Amino acid sequence: MPGGGPEMDDYMETLKDEEDALWENVECNRHMLSRYINPAKLTPYLRQCKVIDEQDEDEVLNAPMLPSKINRAGRLLDILHTKGQRGYVVFLESLEFYYPELYKLVTGKEPTRRFSTIVVEEGHEGLTHFLMNEVIKLQQQMKAKDLQRCELLARLRQLEDEKKQMTLTRVELLTFQERYYKMKEERDSYNDELVKVKDDNYNLAMRYAQLSEEKNMAVMRSRDLQLEIDQLKHRLNKMEEECKLERNQSLKLKNDIENRPKKEQVLELERENEMLKTKNQELQSIIQAGKRSLPDSDKAILDILEHDRKEALEDRQELVNRIYNLQEEARQAEELRDKYLEEKEDLELKCSTLGKDCEMYKHRMNTVMLQLEEVERERDQAFHSRDEAQTQYSQCLIEKDKYRKQIRELEEKNDEMRIEMVRREACIVNLESKLRRLSKDSNNLDQSLPRNLPVTIISQDFGDASPRTNGQEADDSSTSEESPEDSKYFLPYHPPQRRMNLKGIQLQRAKS
């Protein structure tokens, strides 16, 4: 015994090295194993092979420090690593049964499904019991997946119906949107047309105001020219009257000059006056001389005659003075006559000038009245044309509004008919989907599995289990394997941990 101590140590070291070499393959693929292994699927088989106990299973599945599946799978690998070579062998058998691809990844061999460990530990009855539990578990999982698949199909059909409904609603909204954009385009076109009409109206108003201003300026210029013409006519008439007055005065002077006595007659009258003065002096001298030589009687007679002569001279002087006064009065009367005649001529000139001015103003008033009548006639014609244009424009607008209203009513009726057609199509689609759903539900009910399987069917299934373990590994792997896509769409199922009653199965096998 003492001599065998070193050999035992060498043997233990060799086993430990082999164990480390075995687990080295697992550690190399630890990331892939932790990512894809579900500990809840492996722990029943590991407990059946007595590699882990209930406490280890509870620690792996329910520990609060292991929230994710990767953490739980890593903890399970750590626990199996502590179990040595047996933990490695049982772990590979569980991978061979549940995850053939991972088994091939770790060992590089094809899975054979021999279950040597569980046969050694529990015997064939334990293997049968384990396989029966796994089959029931798989059936329950398949039923749950079928239910989930039916629910998802129903949800899918519902979503398809909602999608069709949303599509129809979208078509309806597109119809309304198209109608909205069309009405918006019509409104924009009408606004552009309105702005264009306003611009045209403004341009016409500006043109009309400009023409009116030009016409008023032309009328004012015409009036100024007419006033200048009238003033020139007035000056012409005044000059004609002055010329006529000057002509009359010149004719009067000419007549006075023609009626003036001649120079010879004046000289002859002056000679006669001198001769008479000479004779008068001679007679006076004779009379003076006679007075001195005459007697007293003759002197008395001469005195009487002288007195008579003096009286006659006085009378004559009075007559001469009277004649002079009369001549002066006649001259003054002639001057007054000439003055009055001049005033008369001036008044006649003024009267004729005023008459011509009156005629001029009368003509001017007639011209202004004619212009006013023409302006009123043009204004009435413009008003009439404007009223006709406004009436025609309003009539066109009324007809346009009428046609637009008819078009809008027809478009609304068309839209309502399209919407009604879309709604009826939606109703038809809904009815078809309901009919299809009812038909599929009836087919699913016919094809669904019963909840409680008979014992004979279970025994028959387990009677055929042994050949399947040898020759149909691919079928078992397809039913027991969970793909990543299934984990996305289906909830994980945790079967209840219970042991099955095998009395009925044993009785059935005894009868057979």
Score class of each variant (00 low, 15 high):
residue 109 K to W: 06
residue 5 G to Q: 13
residue 30 R to K: 01
residue 62 N to T: 11
residue 84 G to A: 05
residue 141 Q to M: 09
residue 31 H to C: 13
residue 71 N to F: 03
residue 42 L to Y: 00
residue 10 D to I: 10
residue 54 E to R: 05
residue 75 R to W: 05
residue 126 G to K: 13
residue 129 H to R: 11
residue 118 I to T: 15
residue 31 H to G: 05
residue 34 S to C: 14
residue 20 D to C: 12
residue 8 M to N: 14
residue 62 N to P: 00
residue 57 E to I: 02
residue 10 D to E: 12
residue 136 I to Q: 05
residue 62 N to C: 15
residue 115 F to H: 15
residue 16 K to M: 12
residue 81 H to Q: 08
residue 115 F to C: 08
residue 23 W to Q: 08
residue 94 S to V: 10
residue 133 N to F: 02
residue 27 E to M: 03
residue 131 L to D: 04
residue 32 M to C: 09
residue 61 L to A: 00
residue 65 M to E: 00
residue 40 A to W: 09
residue 50 K to A: 10
residue 80 L to P: 03
residue 118 I to M: 05
residue 142 M to T: 13
residue 93 E to K: 11
residue 33 L to A: 01
residue 63 A to K: 01
residue 58 D to E: 08
residue 83 K to I: 04
residue 103 Y to F: 00
residue 127 L to E: 04
residue 15 L to V: 11
residue 46 L to H: 03
residue 31 H to Q: 06
residue 137 K to F: 15
residue 29 N to P: 00
residue 12 M to Q: 11
residue 63 A to P: 01
residue 73 A to N: 08
residue 37 I to M: 06
residue 5 G to C: 14
residue 35 R to M: 04
residue 18 E to T: 11
residue 138 L to D: 06
residue 46 L to R: 03
residue 33 L to I: 14
residue 80 L to A: 03
residue 138 L to F: 06
residue 27 E to W: 00
residue 51 V to F: 01
residue 31 H to F: 10
residue 141 Q to D: 08
residue 43 T to W: 04
residue 59 E to T: 00
residue 10 D to N: 12
residue 7 E to C: 12
residue 12 M to Y: 09
residue 104 K to T: 07
residue 77 L to S: 02
residue 15 L to K: 12
residue 33 L to N: 00
residue 51 V to K: 04
residue 142 M to N: 13
residue 47 R to L: 02
residue 129 H to Q: 06
residue 133 N to V: 08
residue 22 L to Q: 12
residue 29 N to K: 09
residue 48 Q to S: 14
residue 122 E to A: 05
residue 142 M to Q: 11
residue 81 H to F: 05
residue 65 M to Q: 04
residue 115 F to Q: 15
residue 67 P to T: 11
residue 54 E to C: 06
residue 30 R to H: 03
residue 32 M to Q: 08
residue 62 N to H: 11
residue 40 A to C: 07
residue 107 T to R: 00
residue 125 E to L: 14
residue 145 K to F: 09
residue 22 L to T: 14
residue 54 E to A: 06
residue 86 R to S: 10
residue 13 E to D: 14
residue 49 C to L: 07
residue 124 H to A: 15
residue 8 M to Q: 14
residue 130 F to P: 06
residue 133 N to P: 12
residue 12 M to T: 11
residue 112 T to V: 15
residue 23 W to R: 07
residue 52 I to V: 05
residue 69 K to F: 00
residue 95 L to E: 04
residue 94 S to D: 01
residue 10 D to P: 14
residue 14 T to I: 09
residue 77 L to A: 03
residue 51 V to N: 03
residue 124 H to Q: 12
residue 144 A to H: 12
residue 47 R to A: 02
residue 90 V to T: 09
residue 115 F to R: 13
residue 120 V to G: 07
residue 18 E to I: 11
residue 126 G to E: 15
residue 107 T to C: 04
residue 87 G to R: 04
residue 131 L to W: 09
residue 108 G to N: 12
residue 38 N to V: 03
residue 139 Q to I: 14
residue 82 T to G: 12
residue 113 R to A: 12
residue 94 S to G: 13
residue 137 K to A: 08
residue 69 K to C: 02
residue 130 F to H: 10
residue 55 Q to S: 05
residue 39 P to A: 08
residue 7 E to L: 14
residue 43 T to R: 02
residue 51 V to D: 04
residue 100 P to A: 02
residue 121 E to C: 08
residue 72 R to I: 00
residue 65 M to V: 01
residue 32 M to N: 08
residue 59 E to P: 00
residue 144 A to R: 09
residue 117 T to N: 15
residue 48 Q to A: 06
residue 71 N to P: 02
residue 98 Y to R: 02
residue 84 G to P: 04
residue 73 A to K: 01
residue 51 V to G: 02
residue 84 G to I: 03
residue 46 L to E: 03
residue 41 K to D: 00
residue 48 Q to H: 03
residue 113 R to F: 03
residue 34 S to E: 01
residue 84 G to Y: 01
residue 134 E to A: 14
residue 16 K to T: 10
residue 13 E to R: 11
residue 102 L to S: 04
residue 78 D to L: 03
residue 12 M to F: 12
residue 140 Q to F: 10
residue 85 Q to E: 08
residue 122 E to D: 14
residue 116 S to M: 07
residue 121 E to W: 07
residue 16 K to L: 11
residue 66 L to R: 00
residue 41 K to T: 07
residue 44 P to D: 01
residue 11 Y to L: 12
residue 39 P to I: 06
residue 82 T to Q: 06
residue 51 V to T: 06
residue 101 E to S: 15
residue 106 V to C: 15
residue 78 D to F: 04
residue 25 N to P: 15
residue 54 E to D: 06
residue 80 L to G: 03
residue 34 S to F: 00
residue 143 K to W: 08
residue 61 L to K: 04
residue 117 T to S: 15
residue 88 Y to D: 03
residue 10 D to Q: 13
residue 64 P to K: 00
residue 22 L to S: 14
residue 20 D to M: 10
residue 56 D to F: 03
residue 124 H to F: 07
residue 63 A to H: 11
residue 91 F to T: 06
residue 6 P to N: 13
residue 46 L to M: 09
residue 53 D to H: 05
residue 93 E to G: 08
residue 91 F to D: 02
residue 24 E to M: 09
residue 8 M to S: 14
residue 99 Y to D: 00
residue 103 Y to T: 06
residue 124 H to P: 11
residue 134 E to W: 15
residue 23 W to H: 05
residue 97 F to Y: 12
residue 11 Y to G: 11
residue 49 C to V: 07
residue 24 E to V: 11
residue 7 E to S: 10
residue 25 N to H: 11
residue 29 N to M: 04
residue 86 R to G: 12
residue 112 T to H: 14
residue 83 K to F: 04
residue 46 L to V: 02
residue 63 A to N: 15
residue 83 K to L: 04
residue 68 S to W: 02
residue 76 L to F: 05
residue 56 D to E: 03
residue 59 E to Q: 00
residue 81 H to C: 05
residue 114 R to H: 14
residue 135 V to I: 09
residue 110 E to P: 07
residue 119 V to I: 11
residue 112 T to D: 15
residue 38 N to T: 07
residue 140 Q to V: 10
residue 141 Q to C: 10
residue 52 I to W: 02
residue 13 E to V: 12
residue 7 E to P: 10
residue 110 E to K: 08
residue 40 A to N: 08
residue 128 T to P: 12
residue 28 C to M: 09
residue 144 A to P: 10
residue 43 T to V: 00
residue 10 D to T: 13
residue 135 V to P: 06
residue 76 L to Y: 02
residue 7 E to G: 12
residue 41 K to I: 02
residue 10 D to W: 10
residue 32 M to D: 12
residue 137 K to N: 06
residue 38 N to M: 05
residue 47 R to T: 03
residue 77 L to P: 02
residue 38 N to Y: 06
residue 51 V to L: 05
residue 123 G to T: 15
residue 43 T to K: 00
residue 97 F to P: 06
residue 110 E to R: 10
residue 94 S to A: 05
residue 8 M to L: 13
residue 13 E to M: 11
residue 73 A to S: 09
residue 116 S to D: 12
residue 13 E to W: 13
residue 21 A to I: 09
residue 67 P to H: 09
residue 81 H to M: 06
residue 144 A to M: 11
residue 26 V to L: 07
residue 25 N to E: 09
residue 96 E to I: 03
residue 110 E to G: 06
residue 34 S to D: 01
residue 11 Y to F: 11
residue 84 G to F: 04
residue 28 C to G: 07
residue 38 N to G: 02
residue 18 E to K: 12
residue 52 I to Y: 01
residue 97 F to S: 11
residue 53 D to Y: 05
residue 116 S to I: 04
residue 11 Y to H: 14
residue 98 Y to V: 08
residue 67 P to Y: 14
residue 15 L to G: 13
residue 91 F to L: 07
residue 128 T to F: 07
residue 130 F to N: 10
residue 50 K to L: 08
residue 14 T to N: 15
